[in-house]
Every structure is written in C-alpha cells, then in structure tokens.
Design a protein around this nucleic acid. Structure first.
Lengths: 143, 143
DNA sequence: ATGTAATTGATAATGATTATCAAAATCAGG
DNA sequence: CCTGATTTTGATAATCATTATCAATTACAT
C-alpha cells in the first residue's frame, strides 16, 4: 500500500531502487510519524545492512525529499529531519515537547481560512508549517 | 521607547551594555521586522564599528535571545536567524517568499483556539511558530 | 591606584552537510 | 553472456555555521 505509492513516484522520476535506497526507505517506513535526522537514519540503516555509507544516506534522503516521498524540515537544534510524506498535502503541524523532545503531529488543518485571508492580500500560499512548543501529555507537570 | 524596554531587560539580567553590544543591538533595531543571520549582523555591525569580532556577534545574539530581547528561529537554509522581539507574546507568524526570499509577518493570532483544543488533550502549549511558504504580492505571478 | 572579574577578538575545534572521485554495480546492445 | 557506457556507491576531503578556548584588553569595586 505505502510501497505501491512510493514505487510509482520513483518510477515517475526515473529513480532506481537500489538495495541501499530500499533499506533507507524501509527505515523511513518503519518510523512513520517520526522525524529522523540523517545520522539517525544512518544508524538504523546500518543495523539492516552493515555496509551502507553516510554519503548515500544524505544523497538518498535529499533526493527522496525532492520528489516528495519524504518531507524535509528543520527544527530548533539546527539539523534537518525527514519524515515519510503520505500523499495528503497538509500534514506539517508539529508539537514539539520541550521536556522529552518528542515530536508529534496535529492532524487538523485549521489554517485554510488564514491562507484565504492572505491570498486576498495578494500572497500566493503554497504550503505552511506550524510548530507548537510546550509539554506533551506525559511531560505536562499538571498531569 | 524601544531602547527603554530593552535597557530594562538588560538591567534585570545584569547584562552590561558594552560598545560592541550596543552596536549589535542598534543593527537589530535598524532592521526591525527583518530576520538576520549572524553573519548579516556581523557585516552590518562592521559598517558601524570596524573592529568587532564575529565571536562577539554570536555571543551577543545568543545572550539577547536567551533573555527574550531577540527571537531566534531557524528556517529552511539551515542557519539561525534573529529578530527584535517586541514584548508582545505571539508574533512568530512568517510568510516566506519562495521567489525573492523576503520574510514578512502575519499579525493575526488565530491559533488560540487550536491551542485550547490541544490543551484539552493534555498538552501544555508554551509557544507556537507558523510559517507560510509561497509568493509575496510582488512575486505572485497572478499580480 | 590596583587587583579582580568580565569582555573581547582571533582562531582552533566541532558538527552537519556537501563535493569529489575512484571503484563497484548495473544497463543496453550485439 | 560479453563489453563498453552510465549510474551508484563509499570513503574521505572540503565547506559552512556555530561553539569553545584563551590570552589580552577593558571595566569595576575598593
């Protein structure tokens, strides 16, 4: 199901699925919903196939992001993170826990109205990204 | 007016206003509303006082951000950017033009409802950050 | 004045990412 | 299947932003 959608995108972009790329993709699928940095992907990929190079990881993540198989973003902390992009357009709403660092997602897409508002002002909005900073339910002192 | 508020914060935090720090602050005030990277601040600061070191710029920006005189964030592009933080709490709504790179701000604070919603789920939200990507009125092909 | 503490600027060290390049893998046509 | 051309890979060098180090300067409190 997930693989089918992805393969299609790879084909469309004439991007060959080598063993290394397959391992990296599998890592991303296994971690669906998480936001992995390149070195985190590298470590997990090594577990599956011990002789994969860090350069290949960077290259592959970059390429997969450019064809929208992955979504690439950067959080406070200064390194890029990647997550599987699941076809649907607006899903980039993150809640970052300042205590444990856990990053979860908000499903709602409540920004549509605001985008309309901005377009009336002459902007053309293509995408948005929303980040909340605070404590997740586990870390919330009140809970 | 701006200076008064800032001096107060500096005093409260026992942060001395040396000539170098004053120059850096002046650069930030001159560029109110813009989002400068450390090296951009460095270049402008050099124009005003030719023998300021890059290390001092980094140190000062970092410190000023930690006492909320500046707001520090990171955009696609991988480097930190700083802007003057003007007392009011929620103002971190940015519109990034994909054409010219210009970053402007949305004044509205329409996320309050969403925050309430998340708090009902057990989260404790302390801050948020919203970024729109698209074309500004000048670059919008439709205009 | 004078000794102590804070600040500075140059530069080394670090961490993340990108570029380079020779070797290995893969492909397409005979 | 061969074989030459093309793509991909992994190691590593290069780069870029940021942070740490440290001796020299500056400011402070007595």
């Amino acid at each position: 199901m997930v693989w089918k959608t992805i393969s299609k995108k790879l084909d469309e972009n004439e991007y060959r699925l080598t063993p290394q790329r397959e391992v990296i993709l599998q890592v991303m699928i296994d971690n669906r919903g998480k936001h992995l940095s390149a070195d985190e992907v590298y470590i997990e990929a090594r577990g599956k196939s011990s002789n994969i190079g860090i350069a290949t990881v960077y290259r592959t993540l970059e390429k997969l992001a450019s064809i929208d198989v992955l979504y690439k973003t950067i959080f406070e902390g200064g390194k890029y993170r990647y997550e599987l992009s699941l076809g649907e357009s607006h899903q980039h709403h993150h809640i970052i826990c300042l205590q444990c660092g856990h990053i979860s997602e908000v499903e709602e897409d409540l920004l549509h109205n605001l985008e309309i508002h901005l377009e009336k002002q002459g902007y053309k909005i293509l995408d948005h990204e929303l980040k909340f900073y605070g404590y997740c339910p586990q870390c919330n002192p009140k809970n």
